[in-house]
């Protein structure tokens, strides 16, 4: 009886240890590269892996967004430590600096890019800022891929680009897109990206291009 009791305790201990070692399953819901290598296997959006698995990072800006299938909470994984821009610390009671200016200008020039892939798959990057007019971008640009923090993606063709250049900063554009709902999302995304989201430096793939090319506006 005593031996049985000890065996039960040991079995329980082993089971607990197994459970503790068994990490949560993480489901990939977003990657900013075509794939991510986890434990030697290439994984894509929709694949799952264990929470302690070894991820091979291909570049320092790679990021993977996952859902923890146990807690259903979302989290991101990055090769570099996540910089938390905590606005507040005890030291803030002593000194606080506020900006008396808008945040566009330098940030926009530094971080906002318009990316274009030509028919051969070559990629061109154009820095954008308020002072850089859309009309200065070569007319052969066929695609404008905007990836704002809002997560909205947009594809804009030459024709639509010309349309935007013509009507930019004009009330006519607003009334036009209201009348033509199919342009609504594109207009929203473009305007918000230009005006408000100076973070648009995202790579996209040949598959992306093919997909976007299949869309017509």
């Amino acid at each position: 009886m005593r031996k049985l009791f000890i065996c039960l305790i040991v079995a329980l201990f082993c089971f607990s240890a197994y459970c503790a070692a068994d990490g949560d399953k993480l489901k990939i819901i977003y990657i900013n590269t075509p794939e991510v290598v986890v434990d030697g296997k290439s994984l894509h959006v929709g694949d799952t892996f264990e929470s302690g698995a070894c991820i091979r990072w291909d570049n320092p800006r790679q990021v993977v967004k996952v859902i923890n299938m146990t807690t259903k909470k979302q989290q991101i994984l990055k090769p570099e430590p996540i910089v938390v821009e905590t606005e507040h610390s005890t030291a803030d009671y002593m000194n606080l600096d506020y900006n008396l200016s808008t945040r566009d200008e330098l940030q926009a020039a530094a971080y906002f890019f318009l990316e274009y892939v030509d028919d051969n798959g070559s990629k061109y990057t154009y820095p954008l800022s308020d002072g850089y007019s859309l009309s200065e971008i070569p007319s052969k640009v066929a695609l404008l891929y905007c990836h704002a923090y809002s997560g909205q993606d947009a594809l804009i063709t030459d024709d639509f680009m010309g349309f935007l250049n013509e009507f930019r900063s004009s009330d006519k554009l607003v009334s036009y897109v209201i009348d033509h709902q199919e342009y609504w999302d594109i207009y929203k995304c473009l305007m918000w990206t230009l005006m408000d989201r100076p973070h648009c430096d995202v790579d996209f793939t040949v598959e992306d291009v093919d997909f976007f090319k299949s869309l017509k506006f």
């Binding site: 989290q75 990055k78 938390v84």
Partner: peptide, 9 residues
């Protein structure tokens, strides 16, 4: 104060 915790949550 932030969208993510330092652990990425």
């Amino acid at each position: 104060y932030d969208i993510y915790s330092p652990e990425g949550d």
